[in-house]
Design a protein around this nucleic acid. Structure first.
Lengths: 222, 222
DNA sequence: GTCTATATTTTGATAGAC
DNA sequence: GTCTATCAAAATATAGAC
């Protein structure tokens, strides 16, 4: 089940990269069961046997990609927290970071949605660990805020849902939104991610904030 | 591609119901590609040939289930809106209704997440139509609120993400949350749906509201 | 309406030459 | 490291008897 990366570095070793890129696209677009090894190989312009040279199975390949994606998210939010600042600022940066990762790694949101739907059947301990790191980063921010009197008590899981879910959903739902929006009155002009980020920030901070909201200061959308 | 329901009503006609129940479970748990017709038949305690007697293909069966689920959501929110009341009340009821449907039909959230991830590949016009009805119901509530000066302008799509996404995500993520939470400090006691509903209501209303928030009146979680 | 085969294709995975 | 050829096991779908 492990990725058994060959240690020799002859040639550019570009094949493995192409394989990973192709697999990421295929898994994101079709899911684990919908993805076909043949198709991955074709996309990567390599032979199917090469897939099994680099990874012991389709499942191992999938897991490697999943792990890399979650690790990237965990590192990103951890780095963001490392920049310090007031709790409100940190939370805002946390949200920006999630949104940024979702944009920079467009395969992450669909894969994450699928894993949720799947009940996490493909998640092993290492991936769960990365997930925990993300949640712990958020929890630390909330704790700081509470101790400094800026935030009221709140459940990290709940806050995480309020942040992560709309962002993942929004990015992943682009194709569906296009199709639904096409037959809707023009007042429904499709929003952009920035609008969603602004909404998530405003709504999350409003719930957490202990300070009376300055009425009229926050935009709800673009 | 259509469900070609036989018109004869001899016997209790229970087979078809069992088939639908089994298929719903299988599709929700495994997705379209992961679901196997053999397994659906076994679960329904019928023969595989019976599946094809009732539905022309696996895809047609899947679509029938998807359509029924989305129609139920559309009807539920439409009914909820029909009960009238002030915009704030209506929006609150809209959120309750979505949460209630997600609980009453536990297969809906995972199927919805998967369809999003899939880019809506299996959604046909009839399903998209139901989806539009849901969005239009929300848009009508927001419009009322805006006209009555209770809500500030907001993008229906964005508001929909802020409501739908956390609820779907939360319900569907129960298994993953269990596994992640198991190794987290006890302060992370798992939240319940009510906590999420309260958060979604509070945060959405806070963003939309034109009235200064009464500081300290809203709980963020349970 | 229901079942027992069975046809046909696809798919994950491997053997073995180069 | 890379390819060709191929196996063995699923999986969708159908024929046809009862």
């Amino acid at each position: 089940m492990v990725s058994q990366r060959p240690r020799s570095r002859s040639g550019v070793g570009q094949t493995r990269e192409r394989l990973l890129v192709a697999a990421r696209e295929e898994f994101a677009a079709r899911g684990f069961d919908g993805a076909k090894v043949d198709r991955i190989a074709r996309r990567a312009r390599i032979n199917k046997a090469m897939v099994y040279y680099h990874f012991s199975s389709k499942a191992a390949l999938y897991l490697a990609i999943l792990r890399e994606q979650f690790a990237a998210v965990a590192v990103a939010v951890s780095d963001a927290r490392g920049k310090g600042g007031a709790p409100v600022e940190q939370l805002s940066r946390y949200i920006d970071t999630i949104a940024h990762v979702a944009l920079a790694r467009p395969h992450f949101p669909p894969m994450w949605l699928r894993e949720i739907a799947e009940g996490g059947r493909h998640l092993d301990e290492s991936v769960l660990g990365e997930l925990r790191r993300v949640l712990e980063t958020l929890a630390a921010i909330l704790k700081d805020g509470r101790e400094q009197g800026a935030f009221r008590p709140a459940h990290p899981f709940v806050i995480q849902m309020g942040i992560m879910a709309p962002l993942m959903f929004f990015v992943a739902s682009a194709p569906v939104r296009l199709r639904v929006g096409r037959k809707l009155p023009p007042a429904f002009a499709l929003p952009d991610l920035e609008g969603v980020v602004a909404h998530v920030k405003a709504s999350t901070l409003a719930v957490l904030s202990t300070a009376p909201a300055a009425s009229g200061s926050r935009r709800a959308s673009s």
